[in-house]
């Protein structure tokens, strides 16, 4: 997702060398994606993400919300840890939780202090608490509140999914800046 991209994009699982430069696919390829919010590298990330899948496939999307799991969320670290956000040549500082929203993508955000390191470590352990959304119906829509939940694609293990798992993503704002 780039600042000048259309709100509608089409996502397909690809190997790292096939991924767009500086993209999550270029880093993680067909492996499992880390938990993230979309557009975390943008000044103003989208509020909502709609993922639309035409055909069923065997690669689920994982979701994490603060109420997932039994381990306590280290809110102090999420609110006060400072990350360096990299987006091409642009750099800015941000915390994971700010002004009522979550912003996190370990691929574009580097922890700058101890609390940020603790926050990043938390989301590694939070992988154990995700909910998996399987794509089992045709024309299925998954609506994600990108301000309150993290998501990621599980590892692509079925070779067929490389051609059949086509996800239409709609990213949009509902709040005024």
């Amino acid at each position: 997702m780039r600042s000048n991209d259309s709100p509608h994009s089409i996502l397909r699982p690809v190997a790292p060398k096939e991924g767009r430069r500086n993209s999550m696919s270029a880093v993680h390829g067909l492996d499992e994606q880390p938990l993230h919010t979309d557009g975390a590298h943008l000044r103003r990330p989208p509020d909502w993400i709609a993922l639309i899948v035409e055909k069923p496939n065997s690669t689920p999307t994982k979701l994490w919300r603060p109420q997932n799991g039994s381990r306590p969320v280290p809110w102090a670290a999420l609110e006060n840890g400072v990350f360096l956000v990299k987006n091409g040549s642009e750099r800015f500082l941000a915390s994971i939780k700010d002004v009522g929203r979550l912003r996190y993508d370990p691929t574009s955000m580097t922890p700058c202090d101890l609390r940020a390191v603790q926050a990043a470590a938390f989301f590694v352990t939070a992988e154990a608490d995700v909910e998996e959304h399987p794509w089992i119906q045709e024309n299925e829509i998954l609506l994600i509140d990108n301000r309150k939940a993290l998501h990621g694609r599980k590892e692509v293990t079925d070779p067929a999914d490389r051609s059949t798992r086509v996800v239409h993503r709609l990213a949009f704002q509902t709040e005024k800046p």
Binding site: N80, V82, L114
Partner: peptide, 26 residues
């Protein structure tokens, strides 16, 4: 890019430096 005088960006950078000052990293 943030403007170099953006007060919110300056405050956040101050916060990062205060974190460095207060983090229990020995």
């Amino acid at each position: 890019m943030s403007k170099p005088w953006d007060p919110d960006a300056l405050f956040l950078k101050a916060k990062l430096f205060v974190n460095h000052a207060m983090d229990e990293e020995g």
